[in-house]
Design a protein around this nucleic acid. Structure first.
Lengths: 337, 337
DNA sequence: AGACAGAATGTCACCGGTTACATAATTAGC
DNA sequence: GCTAATTATGTAACCGGTGACATTCTGTCT
């Protein structure tokens, strides 16, 4: 593997000149420029980015910690972040924590060791020591979707979970439902807590009582959604409408519904957070709260580069992107069709 | 940021001893070990992975080039690769080419500059110069899903597109269909060519003629699927069954079908390559060829580590993982229900 | 006590760009 | 034609771990 010194030797110039030709900025005489280019071509020379990173003190790498890159929402966010990164000559190092505290800590430690220039976090499920260590280390950081407790000064890109949830539940109530259920993630996740709060608020303002057994918390993934929905459906008295915390839960819930022969929306109305490309084609088309996942990722990237360019001193208000309730056919008036 | 020399100084040992304590392997007296650990804790020392990479000559990084990480199939592959990487103390650098030749080349160049230890390619749509340069450079490489032309000695992890496609089309023919259509990707993609070949073979062996206008090639993404299906549906004489090249195309096709009020399977039978979690819940549940995406990624990782550990000299036959035709309700006998 | 294997520890060149600084070559100004 | 101001170019220290090699210390055996 040819090094810059080989190029310099062959072109009969100094390494500094090679750098000047390759990285631009400084002026080099046409004659030397050409000699350098020829030597580069001849030797198939490629800058060693590791050496450059070490000496420059920047890796041009963004770390993205997610719970699972295979989750479509997550993957969209990743894509948005990647595109923004590429625009700045950066790349994204993605790590999945798999909802595992230890793996999350290990991945963050790995980001630190690799000295990524900045980190986007879409994973932290709570006040993990590893996250606060990262923050304390001064690493430029942005939270995506949710902010772990006790991390005040770190910017956040999110949607308004609470009011979006409230809006969706109001819609259900407007349809005449008075006995509502929700299948929810672990309340240690801020978004889960917020969506549950939105659910409760909408019920409260309509004077409805939420039966505790109708709000099932602590579920994640399609398996969790399945389990949660089974519990709801097996209740002696079933709610007439269910609000799902996210897309994964909804998919699992669908399985439970199908398995028990429950008809949507005749027997049960269903709304979920997170839209998916296939929801319009599901039987019945699913009403959902759409989040601009790609845009969230891109926005997170913008915040990170802002942090990188302008420092973390300035206050940065949360970036709140808007959601859209996409009404399709999975909800019906109570009793009617 | 504390360096290893700071640690060595504080612990009153040499840098070599610090390395020995931190990286294990060699024996260090308990007294010194403890002094080093204390100094590390005191200084919040974290090994600088960039420096380590430079000196060691290995970044413990795998590059994964995909067309779009937001594609669910791709994301699953990525996850499989990541898990395998993590098991080996590696991480994955993901880049999306977005079906753009230039961006693909730029991303591969970036992998080379960053000196990733190995690369998995799930993107190359043809004989791009950038891919052959990568191969020539001696970079340990594995192709995933498809092998670009003229890259013989590089291992490949795939499923058997041709026979899976043939099986699916045979199933359609077995249902009595004699006028079949296919919406397909660009034939420059080996998988597209293979699936189209499988389609043709199944038709040929049943003595069916494939009308050229029924085999629409060159489409990608949901938009492409929509366009392709529109073309098929607008044909003066519609085929009674359509085979879709992949999941994205199928989603777009679904939109076209819905828009034109075509009923599946009554008016049209549909089978697609690639299964999705929601396909069982689509109206009607979609019959699909499932590929073990996660496993494909994991297997690609295994090949890469094999390459890294044992060199690229040995011949490596393609790793062929099996597919499964999941028959649901999107296909019906011709004329009947 | 002397010799010696083996364990423990230290020294330092090296990986390959980058960049501050020094020096050399031009050009401009009068 | 000579000095000052630019512009072009080279030198070498530096980024921070790593590992080959050298050295020093133990403890064992004669």
């Amino acid at each position: 593997m040819a090094s810059i010194r080989d190029v310099a030797r062959l072109a009969q110039v100094s390494t500094a000149t090679v750098v000047r030709v390759l990285n631009g900025g400084a002026t080099v005489s046409p004659a030397r420029t050409e000699r350098v280019m020829k030597a580069v071509a001849e030797l198939d020379y490629v800058t060693n980015g590791v050496a450059a990173s070490l000496s420059r003190g920047s890796t041009r790498l963004l770390g993205l910690l997610v719970s699972d890159i295979a989750n479509p929402f997550t993957a969209q966010v990743a894509r948005g972040l990647e595109d923004e990164a590429v625009r700045h000559g950066y790349q994204v190092l993605i790590a999945s924590s798999d909802f595992d505290r230890e793996r999350e800590a290990a991945m963050l430690a790995s980001f630190a060791r690799r000295t990524v220039d900045a980190v986007a976090l879409l994973s932290a499920d709570g006040a993990t020591e590893s996250v606060s260590r990262l923050v304390r280390s001064g690493m430029p950081t942005v939270f995506v979707d949710r902010r772990p407790p006790n991390t005040p000064a770190i910017p956040l890109v999110r949607t308004d979970s609470l009011s979006a949830a409230r809006e969706a539940v109001r819609y259900l109530i407007g349809l005449g439902h008075t006995d509502l259920g929700m299948i929810c993630g672990p309340v240690s996740m801020p978004t889960a807590a917020q969506r549950a709060a939105g659910f409760r608020e909408a019920c409260a303002e309509a004077g409805l009582v939420v039966r505790p057994e109708c709000l099932r918390e602590g579920f994640l993934g399609t398996e969790g959604g399945y389990a949660a929905m089974c519990e709801v459906l097996d209740l002696p008295r079933r709610p007439t409408a269910v609000f799902s915390f996210n897309n994964m839960l909804a998919i699992g819930a669908l399985r439970a519904v199908r398995e028990r022969g429950v008809r949507i929306p005749a027997d049960l109305s269903l709304v979920t957070f997170d839209d998916m490309e296939l929801f319009p084609f599901v039987d019945p088309p699913l009403t959902a709260i759409a989040q601009p996942a790609y845009e969230i990722g891109a926005e997170a990237g913008r915040v990170l580069f802002d942090l990188l360019e302008n420092g973390a001193d300035a206050e940065r208000p949360d970036v709140v992107l808007s959601t859209e309730l996409r009404i399709r056919e999975s909800c019906a008036p109570v009793g009617g069709v």
